[in-house]
């Protein structure tokens, strides 16, 4: 087996939870599906709109469909061996515990600051050391170097931590894609901790 095949084979055993399927969640899920993570648990309550297409991993002919269904389909088209469990719902504290307690890592991919706070508090206080990778600060364009990652025990923070979305600062594909892929990269780093390539 080639090294990418070995990695893909190794990643089959893992489950990653993705909370939210917007700019962060859809792009992160696709990256994880491409490398071969075995199972993805995705959740979102929203539908695909035309305005989403400037940054989210959906297609024009998917407008009006539930994001979880459209994303599940897109993942399958990329890598049919990935198992996708999709949940059409707005997540609350008890849902997060129920849906994601069996995951090896959880990716926070919400839009709203209060939802980000809710999942961080839930995972830190009720999910006993589970790794959570969050995306904070990616609106606007340019200034690539301001995007970075830092770790505080099992909480991994990706983003510039300052650029909030506003009327004058939209979220656009390049920077949200950078943070989403950075989150996927941190997930891989955790999952491949004990991976040993064969000769």
């Amino acid at each position: 087996m080639t090294l990418p095949e070995q990695i893909s084979n190794y990643l089959k055993q893992f489950t990653v939870g993705i909370a939210g399927c917007g700019g962060l969640g859809s792009n992160c899920a696709v990256a994880l599906a491409r490398v071969g993570v075995g199972k993805l648990i995705i959740a979102d309550y929203d539908i695909v709109t035309e305005q989403n297409l400037n940054r989210q991993y959906y297609f024009h002919d998917q407008i009006g469909r539930l994001k979880v269904h459209a994303l599940s389909e897109n993942i399958k088209r990329i890598n049919s061996s990935v198992i996708v469990k999709s949940f059409d719902m707005k997540l609350c504290v008890s849902d997060i515990i129920e849906l994601y307690s069996g995951c090896n890592v959880i990716v926070e991919a919400f839009d709203k600051a209060e939802m980000k706070q809710m999942i961080i508090e839930t995972v830190l206080t009720k999910m006993n050391g589970k790794s959570l990778v969050v995306g904070v600060g990616m609106a606007g364009w340019g200034n690539s170097i301001s995007i970075s990652t830092r770790r505080s025990e099992n909480l991994i923070i990706c983003g510039d931590e300052v650029s909030e979305v506003s009327e004058t600062l939209p979220v656009l594909a390049p920077r949200v894609g950078m943070v989403a892929n950075m989150q996927a990269n941190e997930v891989l780093d955790i999952l491949l901790k004990d991976f040993k390539p064969e000769n």
């Binding site: 962060l24 991919a109 839009d111 600051a113 961080i120 904070v136 990616m138 909480l155 300052v162 650029s163």
Partner: peptide, 27 residues
């Protein structure tokens, strides 16, 4: 984790490791 209701009670002392994360909308 320190809850907001404890922000006036929890005392930070020499040598402590403090993380403050500002959550902002966008994603």
């Amino acid at each position: 984790l320190v809850r907001r209701r404890d922000f006036d009670n929890v005392i930070v002392k020499d040598g402590d490791d403090v993380m403050i994360l500002h959550l902002i909308t966008g994603g």
